[in-house]
Design a protein around this nucleic acid. Structure first.
Length: 231
DNA sequence: AACCAGGAGACAT
DNA sequence: ATGTCTCATGGT
């Protein structure tokens, strides 16, 4: 094509500006979240699997149960029979599949010498592919481990992120994981601390009143919503 | 008392 | 490639 039509009106506000403003508002409204709730990178990783489609409250119970039984350790997870592991994580739901997932993760960690320090030194792209190859680890779980356990600048996308972005009109509702992740990573500086806090804030906001209301009142993102109060 | 949580794998289309 | 089903406890 030879010609690019002249821009008749100034381009819409760049995505980078919108995303940064969104972040500022969430931070001002909810405050720093200091995620991930977990004392060690290993515990973060276990939590990332246990929280799949599950309320965090139930995950806390499962993790407490693992601690109580001395199972919150990669070696112990490898040793314990799956049936007993399933029983231990029962409050988190889906305990049979999740027991298998924890086993798969523990086995892989063993091949990494159970060292998150070593993992954190590795290349992001190849590490992500390896995490995705573990049974039970999908994109969100892999990215949660990369960001919150390995301190990598990788943006985590979840159901809340998708819904909020769609309601703000920043993405089509059908946008896939990679597309949603790209919006953030291509328009924000690749800083671990920023991604850490941003994702946490999106989750916190997602759980707020805006969850079910088609039109939410007193929403902290009100001024960013295109048509009415729908974030 | 239905509805749903900080998803992912198996399987059909 | 995209859609549907399954997995399961506990809170609202």
């Amino acid at each position: 094509m030879a010609l690019t039509p002249p821009q008749l009106h100034p381009a819409v506000k760049p995505a980078s500006a919108i995303l940064f403003e969104l972040f500022q508002r969430l931070l001002a409204a909810y405050g720093p979240q200091h995620w991930w709730p977990g004392e060690t990178p290993f515990e973060v990783t276990i939590g990332a699997i246990l929280t799949q489609s599950t309320a965090w409250k139930n995950v806390e119970r499962a993790i407490a149960s693992l601690k109580l039984r001395g199972l919150l350790d990669p070696g112990e997870l490898r040793r314990v029979p799956v049936a007993r592991l399933a029983e231990a994580i029962r409050p988190s739901g889906y305990y049979n599949v999740k027991a298998k997932k924890l086993k798969a993760m523990a086995a892989w960690l063993g091949a990494q010498k159970d060292s998150f320090a070593a993992l954190s030194r590795r290349d992001i792209a190849s590490l992500r592919l390896e995490l995705l190859s573990i049974w039970g680890v999908g994109e969100e779980t892999a990215d949660s481990v990369l960001l919150y356990a390995c301190n990598k600048p990788v943006f985590v996308v979840d159901a809340y992120t998708r819904r909020i972005m769609a309601r703000l009109g920043l993405l089509p509702p059908t946008t896939d994981y990679a597309g949603c992740q790209a919006l953030f990573m291509n328009n924000l500086p690749r800083h671990t601390g920023l991604y850490n806090e941003y994702h946490a804030l999106l989750v916190v906001h997602g759980k707020s009143a805006c969850k079910t209301d088609p039109v939410c009142r007193a929403c902290v993102l009100a001024s960013l919503c295109p048509q009415g109060n729908r974030c």
